[in-house]
Nucleic acid binder design. Structure first.
Lengths: 293, 293
DNA sequence: TTCATTCTCTGACTTTAGTCAGAGAACGGG
DNA sequence: CCCGTTCTCTGACTAAAGTCAGAGAATGAA
């Protein structure tokens, strides 16, 4: 990281806030304070619980209550106690509220369009691509790896999605019972490790290392959530697992993969894994890889 | 412009405001309201006039006055009437004020660094490049072309910088008196046109069309400020001049250029100009171009 | 010299966006 | 059924960020 990079980031921050700041003005044009307007965006199709609102926006409970009452007075929301719990209030948008939110949405669209309109088609495409890249890399910066127990809620969530994705992508479907097992105990220290990647408080990827009994470890359960692909998460997880392997004194890592998982194969090759002859009878595998640490 | 692009821009806006919004928090840590903190960034080495402050930040005069008095009470600025005009007040930073501004600057640096730190070197470079691209294209969107009289202040400013740049870049220097003339009258409607490109209220580029007496017009005075290069300004100006030429019933455009102006030559070729034999005795020219409209 | 204008400042006021303390209803484990 | 906890709401308060009207000094064109 150098001075040039820092200065570029600062220039970027300056110009982008100038541009994006216009959104607040345009929201205010609707004659409603920003606090209220922001609230409208938090409603799902089934509404929200007040406590969820409070937590998501990190606002004082009294403040939220007051904001909701203003919205209610304007006929934009109605409050009801839907859940079994009589303490929590459920708030839903009325038809008028939904219309109002649409309007704010249209204002956001307008602002976005105003960035694109003055440009020529080729420039527009360049802008959008550059924005996607910035978005990706800013998000990537928020990724955090944590060692978790394989039976933790986060790990379970990842594994379920992983298995489901395998079932969809493998030509033959996927049945965990037919595959070589990697039990929880194999992925729990010191026998192995299970790493979960977190983004915005959500688990978005995982990977496991099974140490085995010799100098060769196995990489298992490498997965990244579709919502977080392109952020380099799998690579980060893989490198962290390799680090763990080195710490554990392993000399070599192995893994096998299915031919339909092409991104994974590309990653392994980039990271220095060489394809080798099959070293096990995993029925779902088509490629076997190995790397000397 | 399509839905996909709009949605990408909106996603970008959302994530960037989240990230950049952290700057306000970090500024507030200094225990001073944002309004005051923002003011500190507006002081040049010679200070500012209060009225300039008011205009630049578009704030109420009473409000600015009050903000300045708070800063003064904190010993960060001093007020004096430096100009001949006894009504306008001149405000300068004290040593303490300069130190304070440095501190805010460091906070901005820190925020910028926090974007880069979690990334790997290659990703950092990608982020910085993408940010530069976004910055460039957002700025490009703010460019506006206006027809100006060649003797207007804006046109004069452009031409002076243009001549100065030629003097620096031509191996032989540049003396307008030795060059083929293009007088103000040749660039004033209906004999010709002078276009100035504006960005953020500053003239940042120009170009002229001299209609001549036949069906052939001449492009002259194509220039872009070094502060605004890479935004496609010259191309925009050139196309606007061609449009004017078509409206005027011209069938052909000509121009000549010096061999040291390589970007200009590249532009002309891209825009469909063909190099032709010299059609005049301009002493500073090495290349002559022509385009059928 | 006069008079409209410009520039800065002061006082009075408003809205927004919170914070804090506590009340009262509902819940849930023992 | 009791009691501590959770959830929402109300009242009272504050700071920030402005807005508005007008006063007073300085300026400059007629």
């Amino acid at each position: 990281m150098n001075e040039r990079q820092i200065q570029q980031v600062r220039r970027f921050n300056r110009i982008v806030t100038q541009h994006v700041g216009a959104l607040e003005e345009s929201y205010l044009q609707r004659g409603r304070p920003l606090g209220q307007a922001r609230l409208l965006h938090e409603f799902g199709p089934d509404g929200v619980e007040v406590r969820a609102l409070r937590e998501r926006l990190k606002l004082d409970s009294g403040y939220v209550s007051r904001l909701l009452r203003s919205l209610q007075a304007q006929g934009l929301v109605t409050t009801l106690s839907r859940t079994g719990d009589g303490r929590v209030r459920h708030v839903v948008l009325t038809a008028k509220g939904r219309a109002e939110r649409e309007t704010y949405d249209a204002l956001s669209d307008e602002l976005a369009a105003s960035f694109l309109v003055p440009l020529e088609p080729a420039q527009r495409e360049r802008l959008v691509n550059a924005m996607a890249e910035v978005e990706r890399l800013l998000r990537a910066g928020g990724v955090e790896l944590r060692l978790e127990r394989p039976d933790s809620a986060a790990a379970r969530a990842c594994l379920n999605q992983y298995f489901q994705e395998l079932a969809e992508r493998f030509e033959s479907g996927f049945n965990p019972a037919r595959s070589n097992p990697a039990g929880d105990e194999d992925m729990t220290p010191p026998a192995g490790f299970f790493i979960v990647a977190w983004l915005d408080g959500q688990p978005v990827g995982c990977g496991a290392l099974k140490r085995g009994d010799g100098a060769t470890g196995e990489i298992k359960r490498m997965w990244t959530s579709p919502t977080a692909r392109g952020l380099g998460i799998a690579r980060k997880v893989l490198r962290a697992l390799e680090e763990k392997a080195r710490e554990s004194g392993l000399a070599r890592l192995r893994l096998e993969t299915n031919r339909s998982l092409t991104e994974a194969q590309a990653l392994y090759r980039q990271e220095g894994y060489r394809e080798v002859a099959p070293f096990n009878r995993e029925p779902y595998a088509h490629h076997w890889f190995e790397k000397q640490l």
